[in-house]
């Protein structure tokens, strides 16, 4: 064998190996379940906004926001592959499982990030594009790279990234950000900690093993239960707020009151039941209901706008 052939064989042997990634692995990088939540909240922002984009442009804007959120997820999985590998819930993700190389996930995430921001700028406006870029930056750099491994307040502050889609969509439709979109952001922002901590109560060992300082690991489950309850109590009136700023109607008011009370009731159960399988079950039920809670609020707003139900008169409309 000539020296050139030997070198070639060695070089080929040193390659990472042929990719086994399927299309479904790249879709998994986009965190489709998180994307579905983003689509619902962003669509609500788009539809509830007073000025509207052409439906086709609105659909493209929505796609850009969803892809931007997915890109954040891919970059998150690229950076967090080491801790994902030691957590049972995330060990099967494409990067820690070895189906997608970290560099591929990085390139995929960066391409989609830049593409979605530019496309949103060209389709809607550059304020919306800037907000989407900020959202991706906040999720990847501020939350994933910095806060997640350094403070138990990681998901409290980092939750802002997940809360932004309605404001991005609102900006896409109107070219500005109003009080209404800020209230929608505030609802998701306040909803995120109890939602995530309910999951942490069940998966606390996972986070401890990975060395992620979640509140359950650092302050313990009982302090987490107390914080969940406090956030649930703060979230209930915030969830009703859209009905008082000219955004939600009578149906929204009724639904937001019911789901808000139910959220607090389930948080009280989590706070009281602290031992054994019942405690895990209560946390699991709160986690499941939190998803229903957020979907219900935004879906009802969406339905009201879609069928033309009028919003309640805004007592503070004169302020805006």
């Amino acid at each position: 064998m000539s020296m050139i052939e030997e070198n070639r064989v060695e070089a080929v042997a040193a390659l990472p190996g042929p990719s086994l990634a399927g299309v479904e692995d790249y879709l998994a990088l986009l965190k489709p379940r998180v994307m579905s939540l983003v689509v619902v909240t962003a669509l609500t922002g788009l539809v509830a906004a007073p000025a509207g984009l052409h439906p086709v442009l609105g659909a493209v804007a929505l796609l850009c926001i969803a892809v931007g959120a997915g890109a954040s997820g891919a970059l998150n999985m690229w950076w967090d592959a080491d801790i994902d590998a030691v957590m049972a819930r995330t060990a099967g993700r494409p990067v820690p499982a070895g189906r997608i190389a970290p560099g591929e996930a990085l390139a995929f995430g960066m391409t989609l990030s830049v593409g979605s921001v530019l496309m949103l700028g060209l389709t809607a406006n550059w304020l919306a594009a800037g907000l989407l870029a900020f959202t991706i930056f906040f999720y990847v750099v501020i939350y994933t790279m910095w806060l997640k491994r350094s403070t138990p307040q990681n998901i409290v502050i980092g939750g802002l990234a997940g809360a932004m889609p309605p404001m991005v969509a609102w900006a896409a439709a109107t070219g500005t950000v109003g009080l209404e979109s800020a209230v929608l952001v505030a609802i998701i922002f306040m909803w995120t900690p109890p939602h995530f901590w309910a999951l942490c109560l069940i998966k606390s060992d996972d986070y401890a093993r990975a060395g992620v300082p979640m509140l359950t690991v650092v302050a313990g489950p009982n302090e987490t239960r107390r914080q969940i309850l406090l956030y649930a109590i703060a979230l209930a009136p915030l969830g009703v707020a859209p009905a008082f700023i000219g955004l939600g109607g009578a149906l929204y008011l009724a639904v937001s009151v019911v789901v808000g009370i139910e959220f607090v009731r389930r948080a009280i159960v989590v706070y009281r039941v602290r031992e054994g399988a019942e405690a895990r079950k209560a946390a699991g039920k709160l986690f499941g209901f939190s998803l229903i809670h957020l979907f219900a609020l935004f879906f009802v707003l969406l339905v009201e706008k879609a069928v033309g139900l009028p919003p309640l008169t805004a007592p503070i409309a004169g302020w805006m």
Partner: peptide, 20 residues
């Protein structure tokens, strides 16, 4: 031939990626 020879599964997945 020496070097990389893709398996049927690898070829199938590469084709799926290309179509996507």
């Amino acid at each position: 031939r020496k070097g990389l020879v893709l398996t049927e599964e690898q070829l199938r997945r590469r084709k799926a990626r290309n179509v996507a």
